[in-house]
Structure formats: C-alpha cells, structure tokens
Design a binder for these strands. Structure first.
Lengths: 350, 350
DNA sequence: CTGTTAGCGCATTCAT
DNA sequence: ATGAATGCGCTAACAG
C-alpha cells in the first residue's frame, strides 16, 4: 500500500518553513556565495535542506539571474571522431569551472542545427560553441546567435559572421607535412598526391590551399568529403590512375584511414609502396596498422582558449581578446610515413 | 556612433503591446498548439513577433509548464566510439519528436557524473538517459535521478536501482560468435581465447559469462578494460604465452582493433594466423584492415525503445513497458574472421 | 474567442 | 544580519 508516491520536490519555501526562516535566508545560505550570516542560521538551513532532500531548481534560478551557468555546444555529427574528441576535450576543460557544457548534435542538417541554436538561446546559455555544419548556410543561424550571446565558431570558420573563431592553423600544418616530406621522402620514387575533404568547410579549403602553397599547385589533388568512404574511393582512383607508389596526403585522419585500409586491402604495402599522411590526430590514428603519421590539432589549447573567452565574456564586455584565434598544430610521426631511415626497419614489414 | 547595442530581447508583453492584444493571446498564437482563435489576431501577433524578432524564452516556459521538452543524456566518455555512436543514434531518433536531446560527458568520474545528473534534474529535463560510469558506484546517483524523473540506463545495467534499462543481449551476441566459430573455424588449429573488458560494467561481465557458457569455462581468458591499449597489451601477452595461431574474441571492437594492430605489427597475419572477432559494430570496424568480424549492437532499435519510453512516460504513468529491455544483436562477418571457405581468397593475403 | 489574474521557484532589492 | 516584497517570462485557470 505504501507506493512510493512521487512527491513534489521540495522548494525553498519548504526549506524556509522547516528552518523557521525566510526564503531570502535560505537563498543566501545555500547559494549566496559565502555572504555574511550567523553560523547558527546557516547550519539550521543546511540541515533542513538536507532533511527535505532539497535540490535547487535551476530553472527558477536561471529565470531570475538571467544566466544559466551553462554553455551550449553544437556539433555537426558525433560519429566523426574528431568532433567527438573536441567535445570531450572541451567538456573536460569546463569541468572545474562551475559551468556545464551541454552538447547537441545537428546531424549535418541546417534545420536541426538552427533548432539546436534556438533551443540553447531559449534556455539562456551563457555562451554558444558551434562547429558549423556548413560554411555558407550556417552563417545566418550563427549571426542570430551572436546577436544575443557570446558565440564561438570552432574548427570551421564561417565568413561574414560577427562571431569569434577558435581553430587550428591549417596552413602551418601543411607546412609541417611539407617539411617532413622534403626531409624524409624521395618524391621521385614516391610522388605526392593530395586527397582533400569538404570544400564547404574552411578547414577543407585551408588545407588544400596550404598544400598547394607548400607543395606547389601542379600536384595532383582529389577532392571529396571528410569520411572514410571517400578515402577508400580515392585509393581506388589513385590505383586505377596507374600509380603504384606514392605519398598520399589526406586532409583528415578519417580520409587517411580509408586510404590506408583500401591500399592494403588491394595488396599495396604502407609505407613501402605508398606513404600515407593524415591530419587531426584523432585517437584511433595511433592505433591503426601501421600507425598514422599525422598533424595533431592542439585540442587542449583550443579548449582552453574557449574557456578563457567564456569566462572573460561573462565577466565583462570583451577585453583584449582577438576575434580570431588560430593555434599551431604539431607533426606526429607514425609508421605510415616514417623518417627516411626507418623504412624497412619497422617490424611489420615482412 | 550606432554601435549595435545589445538590446534586451523582446518578451511576450512586448509582442502583445505591439499587436494590441494580451499576452495570453500571444501565447496562444505562438505556442498554443493550434488552439481556436481568429485568424486576424493570429496573423497580427505573428507579424508583431516577426518584427520584434521575438524568440520564446524557454526558461519561463519551463518554469510554468514544469517540463522542458528536453531529455538529458549522460555518457562516461565521448572518446569511446561506441558511446558516441549511441549518442548520435539517439540524437537522430529524437530529432522529429520535438524533444531536444542534450548531452553531457562525465569523463568517467563519479563526481562529475553526479554533477551532470543534478544539473539535468535542476533544469527539469523530462527524462534522463545514462550510460553509467561505474556499475556499483553510479547506483546512488541513478537512484536519486529515478526518484524525480524517468531514468533509463543504457548499455550498462546498474543493479539495485529502480531505473529502466535498455541494452543489447550480450549472451546472444556471444552465442552468435560461438555458432560462427563452430561453423567456420578449425579450433584445433586456431584455439579460442577471450580478451575481456571491464568487469565493473554489466556488458563486460555478461560477455565473459556468455563466452564461458557457449565456449565452455575451460578456455583461456584475459581480462582488462574497454580500450585499445588493453587490446594491444593482450596481443603481446598472447604471443609471449607462446601462441602462434588462434581465434581471439575481444569483448569490444576497441579491444579487437588493438589486438588487430598489434598482432599485425608483430608480424602475424590476420586471419591466416590469428582470427580476430570484436563486439559492438562501431563504424571504424568496417574500415580496419582487415575489416573486423563483429557483433553489431542494435543501436537504432535501442534508440527507438528509449524514445518510446520517453513518450509514454511523459504521456502518463508507465503503461505496459517492461522495466528492462534487451535487444538481440547480429553478427557481421568481416575479413578478420571470414567464413571457412574465404580464407586465403581475400585479396590482402599476398 | 479573448482578457484578467495568478503563480511556477528563485535571487534580489529595500527596509528593518 | 534578516525578512518582506517584487518580478524574471511564461502559460493555465477562469471570466467574460
């Protein structure tokens, strides 16, 4: 008979009544940030709250304070390991800040992306971090957002918005690859090919531009999208073009992993026949076989930069922060394109 | 001089004043769900809202309605590709429901997991979906949650809570692997080894139990955690134990991928020397080289089941839904453990 | 069909 | 140091 009837959760006035004080006192004791009050009352309030299992209603607080202590993050897709690693890194960075990072996946759909933004704005987030689903068509949504809250574009820059941007220096990344290839590869034997990603994103375009700048614009380039399937198809195309050896630079690790698997499946050896180089530094790259040589994006620094922006933005009008912040990545040598001397020495070459 | 001063966003009374109606009418016109009203007034309200750029304040609405039209999901970790694929699948499933799925990463930390739950509860989510960070120690947090909102454990069951559970039938998955091995493998030449994951999670334990049930309890088993590093170390251990050939069943794809890469790096051929079998069916498994034979979890069905629970739960007291729902997975044959006849035929074997 | 009124839970004045 | 009163923005009763 004593069915656990879902009682209405306790409110401040419940606590106030039980402690014999006013709701104002309860508020000060429980979330007043150490304001001066008699220790006696404070402990009475705390005990009453304890006994009633009181939990603050953040909706009421948010309505009153006009701030939710939450930051919204919108990603195009959680299946892309680079996006989820960014989300994870940012979550971790926000942990100790007292601000909740809330995530929403737009499923690469502009309408859903817009709904996510509206939802976060309506919920009064203190800031919005967005990896844009589309370089042009996301602009309007982002502009709407940036009009009412601090908005930060991450990884993909959308031109003509007034939002901030935090990302990686893709041109420098390509330079690092160029220096590695110059130093460690005989490009007569292993000529360089670029397998690009989505030209609808700034990272896709900047990496292509960077490649052309350093390697010269005469090199062959194949353009597709940021996914493994494209990497595999690109491998097929490279082989059907008659290449039997080369250095393939993928615009992202997911592309490079596709290249890697298809090249090997078709009987080519990596790195003896084809070298493969990626970009991003997602976790699985180091676990591929052979491990991937790649440019590791500085996700920790990017996360820190975003946290700084959020903290500064909520404290005051923006101080000395630049509208745009690009951070330099670093090269990570793997077995798929080792230093010159290492070829043939690696244990997997039978 | 005309600095874009951040004007206070328009409220309902702003719209009401401009349209010459009451706020109640505005509410009915904009979010009344097609309630009867004169088309004239409706359009006047809509126009006024348009002109003022009115956006509903969901915090006010939530406070009043006592429901946020949002569901919170808590994952231990976004770097684990199976968790992020679950999050993505669930997001997609919720898209058309008018409910926002909000994600929070607990970073495998009980205190943070608890903070996430409190945050979602405080924000009045309509339901909570949680992949528990720990089998025992998450129980208290989950119980707290389930006392005030529909709470659904996903993938990892936590005993002694009153929450619902949705997951995959791990025992059946192991049975599928057993049938495949029985049918396609000569276990005299390639004896079976199990490389288990975290015994702190129900999936980890159920897969071990399932393995022992079908393969017999005399088989060698190695136990570690659900990550690639463990798979690699397990491969080392298997080799240092003197095995030169075998069928290695990993309790998760991430483990199997670690096995795969390390075995190949150390010069063993897959599947000729060692077969490797995984569990989960994450995207990259199909892109490994060789592609992974694995048990694909029914993430779409699991997502659908959760949506059903949420919709039913918000409509009424729970109808005929069972407290626990496990769904059967399916075997996906890859090159790492093909059908008997396929060995040696695959193109990658040189 | 529309307007008036009240109150969701909380933090903050302003008095005392 | 504490309490009374106010209102954040919205929707749901209730009147008309």
């Amino acid at each position: 008979m004593s069915q656990a009837r879902p009682r209405r959760p306790a409110t401040m006035s419940d606590v106030a009544r039980r402690a014999g004080v006013s709701t104002a006192t309860v508020s000060r004791a429980l979330s007043g940030g150490g304001r001066p009050m008699s220790p006696d009352l404070r402990s009475r309030v705390e005990q009453a709250a304890q006994e009633l299992g009181y939990q603050v209603n953040l909706v009421g607080r948010t309505l009153r304070r006009r701030s939710s202590s939450a930051v919204g993050m919108i990603v195009p897709d959680l299946d892309n390991p680079f996006f989820s690693s960014l989300a994870q890194a940012l979550s971790r960075r926000f942990e100790s800040s007292g601000i909740d990072l809330l995530l929403f996946s737009a499923d690469r759909d502009l309408a859903i992306e817009r709904r996510g933004v509206q939802s976060f704005l309506g919920r009064q987030v203190d800031a919005l971090v967005i990896i844009a689903s589309h370089e042009r068509d996301s602009a309007e949504t982002i502009d709407v957002a940036s009009r009412s809250v601090l908005t930060i574009e991450l990884d993909r820059r959308v031109p003509s918005t007034s939002a901030r941007f935090v990302g990686c220096d893709n041109g420098h990344g390509m330079r690092l690859i160029f220096e590695h290839v110059t130093r460690d590869v005989d490009t007569t034997l292993q000529p360089v090919v670029f397998v690009g990603g989505d030209m609808d994103s700034s990272s896709g375009r900047e990496r292509l531009t960077g490649f052309k700048r350093w390697f010269g614009s005469g090199r062959p380039t194949l353009l597709g999208s940021f996914d493994v399937g494209w990497g595999q198809r690109a491998a097929d195309q490279i082989l059907s073009d008659g290449m039997t050896t080369g250095t393939v630079v993928g615009a992202a690790d997911v592309i490079a992993l596709g290249l890697l698997s298809r090249l090997q499946t078709r009987g080519l050896r990596v790195p003896e026949d084809f070298r493969v180089i990626g970009f991003d530094g997602i976790g699985v790259s180091y676990l591929a076989h052979p491990t991937l040589t790649t440019v590791r994006q500085p996700v920790e620094e990017m996360s820190q930069e975003i946290l700084d922006l959020v903290l500064a933005g909520s404290a005051d009008g923006s101080p000395g922060h630049a509208r745009t912040r690009t951070i330099r990545p670093a090269l990570v040598l793997g077995e798929s394109s080792p230093q010159r001397d290492d070829i043939g020495r690696s244990t997997h070459a039978r």
